[in-house]
Simulated scan of single mutants.
Amino acid sequence: MSRPLQHMLLVEDDLAWRERLDVVAREEGVQVTHAADGQEALDWLCTRPRASHPDLILLDLLLPRMDGWELYGQLRTNARLRHLGVLMFSGALNGKEPPLDGVVGYLRKPHAPEAMDLALRAQLRGLPELPTRASSEPYALQLPEDVCLPLRTLPSALGHAVRLHLLRAAELVGTELPLASTWLMALPGTPPSLLVTVEGVQVVLEVDDAQRRLTASEVSLAPGLFNGA
């Protein structure tokens, strides 16, 4: 089942990409508003009444100031913005991304904007209904600078995969958190904590149920992780 798409917020810092994707969207009958980074997009959304919010955010994940992952985290924890649908795109996506609340799809970003025309048109024409949001407020995810630093050293594809799984853990913890899985494990102790493991990267998340918040407290990288990178 699909719905009409009339207005899209394009968050992309590269002018050539903005211009090309704007042309494609307008040819599909979609009005486009632009933002050059996550902070500009967030500021714009927060000053707009809900009635004038876009139907979709086309979000590049690699951005200056506030990147796409941080913007998505801000959207999902803001009650006024949680209804917004997001279509993510990045050269580091591999087609195996886990589901995230409000994310309607993923597009792999090729080297040239023109190479994404067909994929974007298909998404705009067949935008699925957004999944029903959980009634409870989702947990916020906080990544202190001492945790972000080693994550920034990762190859881009692996860094994206880790961020995806951290955000997925923040969604699961308030609803259907498994005691153990291939990538997520509840650790014994008080206060409670979670262990996220993705391809040799382990991140410990401290759980604050009162504040509905996950805070990354420790990150470890497997020896030899960068061999051959």
Rank of each mutant, 00 (worst) to 15 (best):
Q123L: 03
P191W: 02
A16I: 10
G38T: 05
L5I: 15
E19N: 05
Q39S: 14
A41T: 04
L58H: 01
P110A: 15
G29L: 03
R48I: 05
T153R: 13
V147S: 06
V24C: 08
D14P: 00
L154F: 13
V30R: 00
E19R: 02
S156E: 14
V201T: 09
S2K: 10
L154Q: 05
A170M: 01
E171P: 05
L130A: 15
A16R: 07
L195I: 06
L10W: 00
L124A: 13
V162W: 01
T175C: 05
N94Y: 03
V219A: 14
V203L: 02
E19H: 06
L172C: 14
T215E: 06
R163M: 11
T77H: 04
L214P: 00
A119L: 07
Y139D: 04
L184C: 12
H53T: 12
A119E: 08
V203Q: 00
A119Q: 11
V162F: 02
P113T: 03
Q74H: 12
P223F: 04
P128G: 13
G189A: 12
L84A: 07
L177G: 06
E145L: 14
S217C: 11
P54G: 05
W17M: 08
E70Y: 01
A112F: 14
V198G: 06
E114F: 06
V173T: 07
G126Q: 09
A161N: 07
G174W: 00
E171Y: 02
Y72E: 08
G29S: 07
A79T: 12
Q211P: 00
R18P: 04
L100D: 04
P99M: 03
G102R: 00
V203G: 01
L5F: 02
P144C: 12
P131H: 06
N94C: 12
N78C: 10
L124H: 10
P144E: 08
L151I: 07
R133K: 15
L81K: 04
R18D: 07
V11F: 03
A169Q: 05
A79K: 06
P144R: 13
R26H: 07
Q142F: 05
R18N: 08
R48W: 02
V11N: 00
R125E: 11
V162P: 05
T197L: 06
T132D: 12
E206S: 15
Q142W: 04
Q31V: 14
V201F: 02
E28T: 09
C148P: 01
L75V: 12
P113K: 01
E27L: 13
L187F: 08
H83W: 04
A140R: 09
S220W: 08
E129L: 15
D43M: 11
H111W: 09
K96E: 13
P188V: 03
A186L: 15
M8A: 09
L177I: 11
L172M: 15
D146R: 14
S2T: 14
A134L: 10
D67I: 11
A210C: 08
T215N: 03
L58R: 01
L118M: 10
D22S: 14
L71P: 08
A16L: 06
A169M: 07
A157V: 08
H7D: 09
A112L: 15
S90V: 06
L62P: 05
T175F: 01
L187Y: 10
D208I: 02
S156I: 14
Q123P: 00
L56H: 03
Q74T: 06
P128L: 05
P178M: 01
T175I: 11
T175Q: 07
R82L: 04
L164R: 07
H111P: 00
L166F: 05
E176C: 12
